[in-house]
């Protein structure tokens, strides 16, 4: 039954994907992308990947729409017509697709216990997590402890992407600085969103912290929590306008968050060296190795969450600032 639902949703996904490519109005493409994201999260959930589904939900539900709208405000709503026909691309894509389809025949059946993915390191992780790390969510143990080095890389990728976006958007010609649009007031004239938003806002932040600290026990963790808290703060900016949001939560705090989270993560690794272990080996952080692991995962998840939250907010405000000059 579940497989039937998954196949059904996947076919919807294909239809939406084709429609996104064919849409010429970028606003329409954005709306279809949102549906795509919702479908994707549902599919992940059906296939039992709750952590990934939560990530897709946290990012796709609010942030992507908001940031894409910020980008859309800077360009026109219609796609430029494509004049040249890319003849070279057609055989390249066709050959690649044929190769991929051919390769997919060798894939193991869905859920096959004999599949290589279940034979390689996964049994070791499942067996050792209760002994070495002792937290119920194995995904968090793998991401935070066993493969902490990869996650460190991901955090720095996010940080680098944020810096890249800031560089691109803060470049402006001096002659373009005249003000054409009135200062953003947000939704302060709309009573219903204001009341409902103010009520919901603290719950979003609270839920973000829940996801952050519940990551050891269920789906969740720093990345999802950072995105959810950032969504809450973006909601505040939408409701009250840019100016008030930046006064309440100034840019330098976001920059300190984006850099400080990544720094915290790296420092936890260095602390492991300083206390006689290896880089990102948390067992030496405390006299009891398992308590050390718990402390290490708590700290690095906090680092991930802070960096993600700061980066997303910086990107949002960069778009908004670009819009209003």
């Amino acid at each position: 039954m579940t497989i039937l639902f998954a196949v059904f949703l996947l076919s919807l996904l294909v239809i939406i994907a084709v429609a996104i490519i064919r849409a010429e109005n970028l606003f329409v493409a954005l709306m279809l992308t949102t549906i795509f994201s919702l479908l994707m999260a549902t599919n992940f959930f059906i296939l039992d990947a709750a952590d990934v589904a939560l990530t897709e939900a946290a990012i796709g539900a609010g942030i992507t729409t908001v940031i894409f709208l910020g980008a859309l405000a800077l360009t026109s709503e219609h796609e430029k017509p494509f004049v040249a026909v890319p003849w070279l691309a057609l055989p390249v894509v066709a050959v690649t697709a044929a190769l991929l389809i051919f390769a997919s025949f060798d894939n193991p059946r869905l859920g096959d216990p004999e599949a290589p993915i279940h034979q390689h390191v996964v049994p070791w992780y499942l067996e050792q997590t209760p002994k070495l790390v002792d937290i119920p969510n194995v995904v968090t143990a793998i991401l935070g402890s066993f493969r902490a080095f990869d996650t460190l890389g991901e955090v720095f990728v996010i940080f680098a992407a944020c810096i890249g976006v800031l560089f691109l958007l803060s470049a402006r010609k001096p002659s373009e600085t005249r003000c054409t649009a009135p200062a953003s007031v947000g939704l302060s004239q709309h009573l219903i969103p204001k009341v409902a938003g103010r009520f919901i806002l603290p719950f979003i932040i609270l839920f973000g912290f829940y996801v952050q600290f519940h990551g050891d026990f269920g789906p969740g963790g720093g990345f999802q929590a950072g995105a959810i808290v950032a969504t809450g703060l973006i909601l505040f900016a939408l409701l009250e306008g840019e100016e008030r949001a930046l006064r309440a939560f100034p840019r330098w705090i976001m920059m300190a968050m984006a850099a400080g989270g990544a720094l915290l993560y790296a420092l936890v690794g260095v602390a492991g060296i300083a206390m006689g272990g290896k880089f990102l080996d948390y067992s030496v952080l405390s006299s009891d190795p398992i308590a050390g692991q718990h402390l290490g995962i708590l700290l690095i998840e906090a680092g991930v969450g802070i960096t993600v939250c700061g980066s997303l907010l910086l990107i949002f405000h960069a778009f908004a600032a670009r819009e209003s000059f």
Binding site: H190, I192, P193, A196, G197, F199, I200
Partner: peptide, 16 residues
Amino acid sequence: LFLMLTSPTSSYAVAN
């Protein structure tokens, strides 16, 4: 609770 608050709010936003 959250759905009963957010769903009419987003309808309001779309209509507006």
